[in-house]
Design a protein around this nucleic acid. Structure first.
Lengths: 212, 212
DNA sequence: TCGTTTTAATCAATCGTTCGTTTACACTAT
DNA sequence: ATAGTGTAAACGAACGATTGATTAAAACGA
């Protein structure tokens, strides 16, 4: 009972902070607002997370950990190239869809001014990059070549991230609820295929052109 | 007296706030910090901008106004499709490069929680969307079709925005200065071409597939 | 009774905003 | 030419509210 309650309170703080950070940004939310939404006392935040930034660190760790565990095994699969790319894009879209708030908060560039948080992000991004080396090689993307990277994997992720940021914003405003409602499972099946087509035709077309 | 001192106080406040907002986010910066950086008295902020949010509104207006004035005439030109697309992508990249801080602050989804600011953004986005109707039609992108829009113009903008967010972040951290230094004019010429290739091959490939 | 969990109260610091006053310069009436 | 008037710009100080953080003590289950 104690342990369950313990975890429940910590989890409630985590989820309340996550929702608020996604809407207002890390600096835009105070610990009292988090405590109120989580229905806990203010001091519980410091008790469980040490400091306000501790919640953000926990969110970042949770997000990148889930992300890595989701895409790493897909990247390591042995599939024909096109099918492999399509599966990866589907996987990433599903992850972003199922973890929108986590992604919005953890993948946000800001705050740039909290060194500890930045270092944590850098550590994760570096690790994931290394973990996806095999898949990257299969795509024949040289990670050292900024251009290849910028119009390749990074571009796809940027498009997907941007989409879910927009979707999240739309869900917050009544006048766009109708728009957001169109973004159902059926849409994301088509969306994943369309993005994969864009990447496949575009990227492979570029490869072919380069080799000439 | 330095040159900075001779600049109008209002302009100094604007520029100081812009740089700080880009780094720390709107909520992460206090008026005292802005006043200190701008070398003005705190009360000057309210004197010139009414309220803190007034600076953000001014930034948003300045950014979208410049953006619209930059891309609208390009969109209205009468060029062969491929050349037109390439020119538009070059134009957008140059705009983002020359106005990185403005774009980072104004195009940021956050803050979602200040209704006035959100409405201002919506007004601008709607207006620009209408202004680019001709170009959109030329691309045969139906603005009502979320899928076409998502993997078309919106996707390209998202990629470019993401690139300059990353570049800006890299410039803030000494360990990535070397990376940022590679992003010179010569790179952006290649980058624009690569993005245009990606879009053109991808777009044409998708169109061809659809028609089957 | 013991260790853990939760509470209310409080800390110094900072938040955005507003106050009354002063400075600097342009214009006008004498 | 001079004194008086109007106005915008800038100032320091202070407002009440809120920030993140910490405390000692109460409440809890074992």
């Amino acid at each position: 009972m104690t342990t369950e309650h313990h975890k429940a309170a910590k989890q409630r703080i985590f989820e309340a902070a996550l929702a608020l950070f996604a809407r207002k940004g890390y600096a835009g939310v105070g610990v009292r607002e988090i405590a109120k939404k989580a229905e806990v006392n203010i001091s519980m935040i410091n008790y469980y997370f040490g400091e306000k930034a501790g919640i953000l660190k926990a969110i970042i760790n949770e997000c990148y950990d889930r992300y890595f565990k989701t895409i790493k095994p897909v990247g390591d699969e042995d599939l024909p190239l096109e099918e492999h790319i399509r599966k990866m894009i589907r996987t990433v879209i599903k992850f972003f869809k199922d973890n929108t708030e986590l992604v919005i908060v953890a993948f946000d560039i800001i705050p740039l001014d909290i060194p500890e948080v930045m270092e944590l992000k850098i550590k994760w991004v570096t690790g994931i990059r290394e973990g996806m080396a095999h898949f990257r090689m299969k795509l024949r993307v040289d990670a050292q070549d900024i251009l290849q990277e910028s119009v390749g994997p990074t571009a796809i992720i940027a498009v997907i991230l941007n989409h879910f940021q927009s979707k999240y914003a739309a869900e917050q405003y009544p006048q766009f609820k109708e728009y957001a409602a169109q973004l159902n499972d059926e849409f994301y099946e088509r969306y994943a295929n369309a993005l994969a087509d864009l990447f496949l035709y575009g990227y492979m077309g570029r490869k072919k052109k380069e080799e000439k």
